[in-house]
């Protein structure tokens, strides 16, 4: 095993921009790459006075010793990271892998559902199930065709892959919950559905599978500080029980999760988040006047950017990826 005593610096060795607001970071951390299991997350601090944000591990490569995080620039921290996290720079802190790994179990036929940014964290699970010999049906939801990412990665581990877009520009027109309905219609023997995405999407998925009594797991990512069970900020309601997402989860039975409570709790710091983001973008705008930032690709139609901007106003989106 690699020597843990070496001081780890969390170097960024790869980055890819999927859209004006979505980007992936590949971080060198051989121990983490070795330890990570599907469904786990890390807590990241981009700089010394930054906040600790939970991000689900979207991929890990044991040979290269890297983990991949997919981030959506929605708040101050994630927008700032979009500007500062370049290949060759390093994050201030990365700790994990946190949470109980998703049990891949003995399911023979599974549906892996990812919506929006949830597409990234569902990947290790889809791959894990495939490696376990299961028949994997992937359902990925995007707003529109040009926001699609990682289709090739999913193709390599899914026996069937269904794309859903809001505008019908690729795959079927509709939500991932519509995709699940189709999958259930054509496969009566589905053992398990795993859904990751914004709370509203996960809730919709739970409602689709509930009448069929198909086991459905969702990955919750509420507000947390330490991620080790110490602050209790991430408590979620399951029926009449209260669990800490960081150490009792993050995967829970979707049919038990109180999504309304989850969504309300995600707004705990909405006001401060807004203040921080505003303050930051004002400061940035001043900088931009001198030196225009180049994250917006010139080929990107403006309407897409706007539709992504509208998403930012949805507080629930802030969950996935900080």
């Amino acid at each position: 095993m690699a020597d843990a005593n070496k001081s780890v610096s969390f170097e960024i060795v790869g980055r890819e921009d999927f859209s004006p607001v979505t980007y992936s970071l590949v971080i060198r951390h051989p121990l983490m790459a070795k330890a990570a299991r599907p469904g786990q997350f890390v807590i990241v601090m981009s700089h010394k006075s930054g906040e600790r944000i939970p991000l689900t591990i979207a991929d890990f490569d044991r040979e290269k010793g890297t983990i991949t995080l997919v981030v959506q620039a929605v708040g101050k921290t994630t927008k700032e990271m979009q500007q500062t996290c370049r290949v060759g720079t390093a994050l201030y802190a990365v700790v994990g892998p946190m949470g109980i790994p998703s049990p891949l179990g003995s399911a023979r036929k599974v549906v892996c559902v990812g919506g929006g940014l949830g597409v990234a964290p569902i990947f290790p699970q889809a791959r894990g199930f495939k490696e376990n010999g299961a028949y994997v049906i992937g359902i990925l939801g995007f707003r529109s065709k040009n926001l699609i990412f990682w289709q090739d990665k999913f193709n390599s581990c899914c026996d069937e892959l269904m794309l859903c877009t809001d505008d019908g520009s690729a795959g079927i027109k509709g939500f991932v919950s519509d995709g699940i309905k189709r999958a259930i219609a054509s496969h009566p023997d589905i053992d398990e559905v795993i859904a990751i995405g914004p709370p509203l999407m996960m809730k919709a998925c739970a409602e689709v599978t509930r009448p069929h009594a198909i086991k459905t797991m969702v990955s919750l990512n509420p507000i947390m500080v330490d991620g080790t069970g110490m602050c209790g900020g991430c408590r979620v309601k399951l029926g009449d029980k209260v669990k800490f997402a960081c150490v009792d989860g993050p995967d829970f039975d979707a049919h038990e999760v109180d999504f309304a409570d989850l969504m309300m709790r995600l707004r705990r710091y909405a006001e401060q988040e807004k203040t921080a983001a505003q303050r930051w973008s004002e400061n940035c705008r001043m900088k931009d006047e001198i030196e225009p930032a180049g994250t917006l690709s010139p080929t990107q139609p403006l309407s897409d950017v706007l539709s992504e901007m509208i998403d930012l106003l949805d507080p629930f989106e802030q969950v996935k990826g900080g």
Binding site: S49, M230, R268
Partner: peptide, 19 residues
């Protein structure tokens, strides 16, 4: 933790909020 370790008393100079 928010106050002592993450310096929420110094928000927004430190990023961690405390409401």
């Amino acid at each position: 933790t928010r106050c002592n370790l993450m310096h929420a008393s110094d928000f927004p100079r430190h990023d961690t909020p405390l409401q």
